[in-house]
């Protein structure tokens, strides 16, 4: 289970202010906390308050700060291809692009970029028509991404299919469809693509968010989930992920498994 720390995102107030004031400390602090917390990647997102023309510069700044403060690679999170490429240019190690959809024009932009920079890439199982209603439609779009990624020579272990998690309080019927998609994505290619979810989305605007997040994470892990963009500063969530990882026999048990999960 690879956790991708979600915290360096302009949607959060402290990060938004740090970006506006060009204050490096909150960015570095979140990079360190997430690194210690068990993250494998640090997601970096400029957030919506930064104008499109400023996004590349801010992305570059965020990536450099995150990688100064932690040894981890970044997951470059933006809807702006210029911002993603600006991040890739200064990134050390193997980055992850977040994300393309199954729209052809987007795949034609992002997949060559992933190939050029030898980056992993997240493929959202959706297109301009929106999020599919069931697992089959999600899988059809996932298959289009798989075929396009393969055509660009991207190895399947570098492709992370995201079946799109919606908030349980408005789209409850999607939750089992997401789980079913996770199971079946593994059948689309051999070797199989990986899977990722934007975990916190499941609990948007709900009370008890941490409980919903970690319960859903464990269920998704049992369905074969490989990675999650999540709040890695939530210790209970990481403990649940580590425990599911052990119970699924993904790693050999030892009494200190909560610690070793964070140190991998």
């Amino acid at each position: 289970m690879e956790l991708i720390g979600e915290r360096i995102n302009g949607m959060f107030k402290d990060v938004r202010e740090a970006i506006l004031n060009r204050d490096p400390e909150p960015i570095k602090r979140h990079a360190v906390l997430q690194s210690q917390g068990g993250a494998r990647y640090i997601d970096v997102n400029t957030g919506p308050t930064v104008s499109a023309e400023d996004q590349p510069g801010v992305m570059e700044w965020l990536v450099k700060l995150a990688q100064e403060a932690s040894p981890l690679p970044c997951c470059l999170d933006s809807t702006n291809p210029d911002a993603i490429e600006a991040g890739l240019k200064v990134h050390r190690g193997k980055a992850m692009i977040n994300s393309t959809t199954a729209d052809q024009w987007k795949m034609d932009v992002y997949l060559p970029m992933a190939a050029k920079y030898n980056a992993a890439i997240i493929g959202l199982a959706m297109n301009d028509k929106g999020v599919p209603k069931d697992a089959n439609d999600r899988l059809a779009l996932a298959m289009e991404i798989v075929a396009n990624a393969d055509a660009h020579g991207i190895p399947m272990p570098d492709l992370y299919i995201d079946p799109l998690v919606l908030p349980v309080n408005v789209a409850q019927e999607h939750v089992p469809e997401v789980l079913e998609t996770l199971r079946q994505v593994k059948l689309l290619a051999s070797p199989a693509p990986r899977t990722v979810v934007g975990l916190s989305n499941v609990s948007q605007r709900c009370p008890n968010r941490p409980l919903l997040n970690r319960t859903f994470l464990v269920m998704a892990q049992a369905c074969g989930l490989d990675a999650a963009i999540a709040d890695v500063e939530d210790g209970d969530l990481v403990d649940a992920a580590a425990t599911a990882h052990i119970l699924l026999n993904k790693e050999i048990y030892c009494d200190s498994y909560l610690k070793t999960f964070r140190q991998r």
Partner: peptide, 10 residues
């Protein structure tokens, strides 16, 4: 094997 791993950690 579990104790082996634990001892290496310690």
């Amino acid at each position: 094997i579990n104790l082996a791993k634990q001892l290496n950690i310690l």
